[in-house]
Simulated assay, not measured.
Amino acid sequence: MDSNHLDRLIQKYIDRTATPAEQEELNNWYRDFTGEEDPFPMTDEQEAVAGQEMLSYLQGRIQRKKRPSVAVFASLAAACMLGAVIYMNWTTTPENQNFVANIPAAASENRFIYLPDSSKVVLHPGSKMDYQYKGNNREVTLEGEAYFDVTTHPDQPFIIHTGQISTTILGTSLNIKTYQSDSVSVSVLSGKVQVTDANQQKTILTPNQQVVYNQHTNNIQQVKIIQATVIDWAKSDMQFQDMPYEQLAQRLERRYDVSIVFKNPALQHCPITGRFSGTESLNEVLDILSQTMGTTYSMNGRIVELDGTACFNQIN
Rank of each mutant, 00 (worst) to 15 (best):
E22A: 04
T295W: 11
Y297I: 03
P104I: 07
M88L: 14
T229V: 09
Q227E: 05
G83I: 12
N313V: 09
L205K: 05
P125D: 06
L205T: 01
M1R: 06
V85A: 12
Y87L: 07
P68I: 14
Q291R: 13
N96I: 05
D2R: 15
Q222S: 11
Y131C: 04
T152R: 12
A77H: 14
D237I: 06
P125N: 11
N27P: 01
S3Y: 14
M293P: 10
K66E: 12
H161M: 08
E25R: 03
L26N: 04
I10E: 10
Q59R: 09
Q291V: 09
K120F: 00
Q314W: 05
E37R: 15
Q11F: 13
Q222C: 06
S277A: 07
Q250F: 12
M81W: 07
G163T: 00
I225E: 05
K65F: 12
F33S: 12
A310Q: 03
P39N: 00
N300T: 09
I160W: 00
E305N: 09
E139R: 15
G294K: 02
T295V: 02
E53G: 11
S108A: 12
M88W: 12
A101R: 10
F262E: 09
G135Q: 10
V285S: 00
K134I: 14
K263V: 05
Q164V: 07
D232R: 01
K192A: 06
N218F: 08
L82D: 15
G135I: 08
A198M: 01
Q200L: 01
W29A: 00
N283F: 08
Q291P: 02
N4A: 15
S185H: 00
I165E: 00
Q227M: 02
R67K: 07
H5F: 10
F158L: 08
R302K: 15
N300A: 15
A228K: 05
I220K: 02
L174E: 03
P20G: 04
R67Y: 15
Q97C: 11
V85C: 09
Y30W: 08
S166P: 02
A198Q: 01
V100P: 08
G144A: 06
I176Q: 06
Y87R: 04
D232S: 11
R138K: 10
I303G: 06
K263C: 01
L115P: 01
V258N: 10
T93K: 02
A78K: 10
G308S: 04
R251F: 04
Y179L: 10
P104K: 05
P104M: 09
Q209C: 05
N219F: 11
E24M: 08
T19E: 14
F276V: 03
W90D: 14
D237H: 10
M129V: 15
S56R: 14
R31G: 02
T229D: 12
S69G: 13
N214S: 00
S185I: 00
S259D: 13
I165G: 04
D15Y: 01
E25N: 04
N218W: 08
M293G: 07
L26M: 03
R64L: 14
D15L: 03
S190H: 09
A84F: 04
C311N: 03
F40P: 11
T295G: 03
A228T: 02
T168M: 06
G83S: 03
Y131G: 00
